[in-house]
Amino acid sequence: MVGEGFGRATPESQGVSSRSIRDFLAAANASGISWHSMMLVRHGQVVAEGWWKPYEPGFVHSLYSLSKSFTSTAIGLLVEEGKLDIHAKVVSFFPDDLPASVSDNLRQATVRSLLTMNTGHAEDTMPKMRASSDSWVRTYLSQPVEFTPGTHFLYNTGNTYMLGAILHKVTGQTLEEYLKPRLFQPLGITGYDWEVSPQGLNTAGYGLRVKTEDIAKLGQLYLQKGSGKGVRY
């Protein structure tokens, strides 16, 4: 169940060893890593959870690149609604933001290229986007694309931002606005916030803050192949 939160159960009742959980926690505490929280879900039941001081269950946590999973979910929903083709060219959404000279590689990049991090860039575009006084979309489109899309993998947070920008072009909504009735509300995710660019679009590839249990809700929704209490995709 994901729509109203998880039930709680003992580890053994769900086939999980309490001793193994204690061993994990001992290893976590000995790791030297600054842990915030942990939640273990089995068969839709929380069998172990905990927060390291000063963190608490009601606190939201910065997801960093886990934000990308929420963005890609939004794109999947947009495709399911018949409003987006993943084979559409990226440049087709931004005719007014293109550089004077558009390279063949840039012209070939598709929504799928953004999703799979195969746009052909040799370096992450996000640092230059964040440093630019121009719009992030125009800055992204002005960057060199050294490789043919689909031939070179590069983890590029700028790609994910462009997915959010495309969603905005298609729907007129930010990622946060689009996902609220389709994902956040059905899953009972509240109290979240998402950073925005200078142009007012959610940063998409990072910057989302939700509670620990909210992360588990998204994971459980995927485990259930898009079906949960109050939501069906």
Rank of each mutant, 00 (worst) to 15 (best):
F184Y: 09
L114C: 09
P198V: 05
H168Q: 08
D214H: 01
Q173Y: 01
G172E: 14
R19G: 04
G164P: 08
A9Q: 09
E81W: 10
H168F: 09
G188W: 05
W136E: 04
P54N: 13
L115W: 00
G207D: 11
I33N: 12
A204M: 08
S67R: 11
I86R: 06
Y206I: 10
A28T: 03
S69T: 13
V111L: 02
E49C: 05
A9K: 02
P11R: 01
Y155H: 05
N156L: 12
G207Q: 12
L78I: 13
G76M: 09
N118F: 00
S113H: 06
Y155K: 02
G191D: 13
G230V: 01
L25V: 09
T116F: 00
T71P: 14
R130E: 15
H121M: 05
K169E: 08
L78Q: 02
T160M: 12
W51Q: 10
G150V: 04
L106A: 03
V90R: 10
R182Y: 08
V170S: 07
R19T: 08
E80M: 08
H43R: 10
G230P: 00
L179A: 03
A165L: 07
P99H: 03
R182G: 08
R22G: 00
L221E: 14
G164C: 09
L179E: 07
V47W: 06
V79H: 15
I21W: 10
Y55I: 00
S20R: 05
G82P: 14
S133T: 15
H61P: 04
Q14I: 01
I21A: 10
D85H: 06
